[in-house]
Measured scan of single mutants.
Amino acid sequence: KYSDMIVAAIQAEKNRAGSSRQSIQKYIKSHYKVGENADSQIKLSIKRLVTTGVLKQTKGVGASGSFRLA
């Protein structure tokens, strides 16, 4: 599940300011076997996790910027 992968990526990075979408994508692609549409799936999952309150956006708008666990 992409949401689990995103949470794992943010936990692994341990950046106080949060993790960027690009760094999350890079982590997921190197640690998991994902399909061609992974980028758009990650983007959608990040937006969903922010609206449900699992992630907090520290910089930027939408799916860009930095995110950390709430």
Rank of each mutant, 00 (worst) to 15 (best):
D4L: 10
K43T: 15
S20I: 05
Q57S: 07
A17W: 14
A8Q: 07
S23V: 05
V61I: 11
E36T: 10
L49F: 02
L44W: 09
S66N: 12
V54P: 00
L55R: 00
I10K: 00
A38E: 06
G18R: 01
T51F: 13
R16L: 12
A38P: 04
R48D: 08
S66Y: 13
V61T: 09
H31Y: 05
I28R: 00
V50I: 08
T51G: 08
L69S: 02
G18L: 04
A70G: 06
S40F: 12
Q11L: 14
Q22P: 04
K56I: 15
G60Q: 07
F67D: 02
I28M: 03
A17T: 09
K33C: 09
K29T: 07
K29I: 08
Q25V: 15
S3M: 12
T51I: 13
S3H: 11
Q41K: 14
A12P: 01
S30M: 10
R48H: 13
K43F: 14
A17V: 08
K29D: 04
A17I: 09
K47M: 13
Q11E: 09
Q25F: 12
K26S: 10
S30G: 06
A63E: 12
V50S: 03
V7I: 14
A38T: 04
S20R: 03
S3D: 15
Q57P: 08
K26D: 13
K59L: 08
S30L: 09
V54R: 04
A9E: 02
S20P: 03
S45A: 15
S19H: 05
G53V: 03
L49Y: 03
Q25T: 15
A63Q: 10
N37D: 14
S20Y: 02
S19W: 04
Q22M: 09
A63V: 10
K14T: 10
L69A: 04
T51H: 11
A8M: 06
R48I: 14
S45H: 14
T58C: 14
V50R: 01
G65Y: 15
K1S: 13
G60C: 10
R21D: 07
N37S: 06
K26C: 08
G35P: 09
S66Q: 10
I46Q: 01
K59V: 09
A12Y: 06
K14A: 14
K43P: 03
S66L: 15
K47S: 09
K26I: 09
Y27C: 02
K1R: 12
K47E: 14
M5R: 02
I24Y: 01
N15I: 04
S20M: 03
K47N: 09
K56G: 03
N15A: 07
L49S: 00
I10S: 06
K43H: 10
T58W: 07
H31R: 05
E13V: 07
A17E: 13
Q25H: 08
E36V: 11
S64V: 09
R48E: 12
K59F: 08
E13M: 15
S30N: 08
G35K: 05
D39Q: 06
K26R: 11
K59T: 08
A17N: 13
T52L: 14
T52F: 08
E36K: 15
I24G: 00
A38L: 12
N15Q: 06
I28G: 00
S40Y: 14
T58P: 04
G18V: 03
V50Q: 03
I46K: 01
K56D: 04
S23P: 13
S20D: 06
Q25R: 06
A12G: 04
S66H: 13
S30D: 12
I46S: 00
S66V: 14
S40T: 12
F67T: 02
G65K: 13
Y32M: 04
L69W: 03
G65N: 13
I24P: 01
S3I: 12
Q41P: 02
Q25D: 06
Q11C: 14
A38G: 04
I28N: 02
V34M: 05
R16V: 12
R16C: 15
D39I: 08
I6K: 15
F67L: 07
R48L: 13
Y2M: 08
L44F: 07
A63F: 10
L55E: 00
K43A: 15
S66K: 14
H31G: 01
N37G: 07
A38M: 07
E13W: 05
I10C: 06
R48K: 11
K56P: 00
I24T: 00
A9W: 02
F67V: 04
S23G: 05
L69M: 07
A12F: 06
Q57D: 04
A63M: 11
K59Q: 08
Y27L: 03
G62N: 07
G18Q: 02
N15E: 05
Q41S: 06
I6P: 00
T52A: 14
S20G: 04
G53H: 04
S20W: 04
R68V: 14
T52D: 11
S30Y: 06
I42C: 03
I28E: 15
A8K: 06
A9G: 00
K33S: 11
L69K: 02
H31S: 03
S3P: 15
L49C: 04
K47G: 07
I42A: 00
V61K: 12
Q22S: 12
G60P: 05
V54M: 05
K1F: 09
K1N: 12
L44S: 08
K59M: 10
F67R: 01
R48C: 15
V61H: 12
G18E: 04
R16K: 13
Y2N: 01
T52M: 14
S64I: 09
V54N: 03
I6V: 09
A70K: 05
K56T: 13
G53I: 04
Q11D: 04
D39L: 07
S40L: 13
K14D: 11
V7K: 05
G35H: 06
Q57Y: 15
Y27E: 00
E13Y: 07
K59H: 10
T51P: 00
G35R: 04
N37L: 06
S66E: 07
G65H: 13
Q25C: 15
Q57A: 11
L69P: 03
Q57L: 11
S20V: 04
G53P: 01
G62P: 04
K29F: 08
D39G: 06
K43V: 13
Q22Y: 10
A70W: 07
T58Y: 10
R21M: 15
A8C: 11
I24V: 03
A17C: 15
I6L: 03
I46Y: 01
N37F: 07
T58H: 07
K1W: 10
S19V: 11
K56Q: 11
I24K: 01
L55I: 10
I46A: 01
V54D: 15
R48W: 14
K59R: 10
G53F: 04
A70S: 08
G60T: 08
G60V: 07
K56Y: 11
T58M: 11
S45M: 14
K14M: 07
F67S: 02
R16W: 12
S45P: 00
G60E: 05
K1V: 09
A8R: 07
Q25G: 08
N15R: 07
D4I: 09
A38D: 04
K26H: 09
K26T: 09
M5C: 05
Q57V: 14
A8F: 05
T52I: 13
K29R: 08
S3C: 14
R68N: 06
A8P: 00
Q57E: 10
A70Q: 07
S45I: 12
S64G: 13
G18M: 04
T58I: 13
R48M: 13
A8D: 06
G60N: 08
S19G: 03
A9M: 03
A12W: 07
T58E: 11
G65W: 15
V34F: 03
